[in-house]
Amino acid sequence: MSRDAASKPARHLHSRSLLAPSVAALFLWMVVPLAMTLWFSAERYNLLNPGKTAFAGWQNYRDLLTHRALWVAMGNTLFLVGLVLAITLVFGTLFSLLLDQDFPGRNICRLLVIAPFFVMPTVSALIWKNMLMNPVFGLFAWITRSLGFGAIEFFSRMPLLSIVLIIGWEWTPFAVLILLPALQSLNPEQVEAARLDGAGPLALFRHIELPHLLRPMAVVAMIEMIFFLSLFAEIYVTTGGGPGLASTNLAYLIFRDALLGWDVGRASAGGVIAIILANIVSLFLMRVVGRNLEDLP
């Protein structure tokens, strides 16, 4: 490739100019909405009072930051992300280990385990809300009642945990989808060798399989985090953020300000805060994950 050192900068320039349009398009794609959000967040702008738009400075941010709702929503967001991540990783790993075994009907079983991921979030939330968790005609209520206990009022007694349950059910298959192939790629000779050395199943998991899975687990965690920070459909369909603020996350709070309160300014400010939070969380996660990966042999 390096035939002539003198022509290199020119070629470099050339390829850059060819790249420029797509880079510019991507840049605009990202920067225009961001700039508009920043601009709106400094405006007093209510859609229902379009004539009364005015520059508000930090007013929207001050409103939000001094208000309980934002902090509750932030706490809920982090709680949701953390707990669902933990659930999907634990259950994803367990299911992958199970499905990696050889047993009759394995393929059907794999298919069934993966299936929830392909149900649309609104649909699965509706199914959980009306057919499973409904305290009058839901399946869970029927089971607990026929066992002699009362019905559990999922969405009023433990709204956030109910949502965690639904999302965990939806996303565990995703973890399986990534972790199972990773497990299958484990070198069987390595496992054989460990077995010969007298490693039991637990030791095998602890010292061979788990280290092997750490990298794909990091991938799962990163991807899921991106989605979980902006969870919306499940909350919208089941609890509407309530009761009180018990299941309102940042995305839902922004929706509430924007489409129920028509306050574009406040909603944009909420959006900017959500961006900052997302960056903090992903930085934190990268650190933790990155350190783990570096320690790997």
């Binding site: 809300k129 409904n134 305290p135 009058v136 209520a141 009362g150 019905a151 009022e153 999922f154 969405f155 009023s156 089941t238 609890t239 309530g242 009761p243």
Partner: peptide
């Protein structure tokens, strides 16, 4: 005196 889960 209402049905369980009335908040939804």
């Amino acid at each position: 005196y209402g049905p369980p889960g009335a908040i939804t």
